[in-house]
Amino acid sequence: MRSRMRWRASLALAALAAGACTAGAATMSVQVKSGQLRATPSFLGRVVAPLSYGDRVEILETKNPWMRVAGPRGQRGWVHGSALTEKKIAMASGSRDAQTGASSDELALASKGFNSDVEADFKAKHRNVDFTWVDRMEKWKAAPEAMQAFLKDGGLKPAEGGAR
């Protein structure tokens, strides 16, 4: 009897392990600072809604490397697979999500680590390392229309994204 109960327990564990992993594959996290949900699977597609770092999205359809997903606020659209990760990403320390998720290794790892606090400390210790140009570089962003025109004028291919 005792042995049968153990069997049941272990079968439940096996189901838990398998189920959790499968569920993990169907839901993914946004791993970029600012992402976009698009109307079509292309970088030229109209932006339907913005996505934020750590947003959980449900995978509805995959057209490698693009994925059609349902966003956290119910919006549906296409996002490039490289903007998503199967890992859960916790919000910055102190946020609601970080506090509720603090017991999980996975979330804890994401919420700690090299962040703006560490960068500030690094800057204070290395006054000769100037981030001015790095901040400036990050603002340099070509507009999608400019990239589209650049490709067309140059006799290049349209940017469908990651056709590898």
């Binding site: 791993q31 970029v32 600072k33 992402g35 970088f43 770092y53 490039h80 490289s82 903007a83 570089m137 990050e138 340099w140 962003k141 070509a142 990239m147 650049f150 490709l151 291919k157 940017a159 994204g161 990651g162 056709a163 590898r164």
Partner: peptide, 16 residues
């Protein structure tokens, strides 16, 4: 523009 054709067109802060 080139980065759009790579394996990881989207990174946390983008290509600059």
């Amino acid at each position: 523009t080139l980065s759009l054709f790579g394996a990881a067109p989207e990174t946390f802060g983008g290509y600059h």
